[in-house]
C-alpha cells in the first residue's frame, strides 16, 4: 500500500501551519442549533433472488 502514503496530501492546510497566520479573525460564530439525531434503517442486501442479474458469491480472497 505504499502508493497510498507516498504522496504528500495537503490536508486542510498541511504544511502551512508554520506560515505566519497573522490575519485577524473575520469569522464569527453566531448560532447554535440542536436537532434530534437519526438512526438509519437496517439494510436489506441485494440477494441472488434478484431477477435479471448475474450473481457471484464472495470468495475469500485472503490477506492483502
Amino acid at each position: 500500500m505504499s502508493e497510498t502514503t507516498s504522496e504528500t496530501s495537503p490536508g486542510t492546510a498541511a504544511g502551512t501551519t508554520s506560515d505566519t497566520a497573522t490575519e485577524v479573525v473575520v469569522v464569527t460564530p453566531v448560532t447554535v442549533t440542536v436537532t434530534d439525531g437519526t438512526a438509519g434503517e437496517e439494510p436489506a442486501a441485494a440477494g441472488p433472488e434478484e431477477t435479471g442479474v448475474e450473481w457471484a458469491e464472495a470468495v475469500d480472497g485472503g490477506a492483502v
Binding site: V27, P29, V30, V32, T33, V34, G37
Partner: peptide, 10 residues
C-alpha cells in the same frame, strides 16, 4: 445522539 450546528460568518 444529537446533532449540533454552528454557523460562522465567512
Amino acid at each position: 445522539g444529537k446533532t449540533t450546528t454552528v454557523k460562522y460568518l465567512m
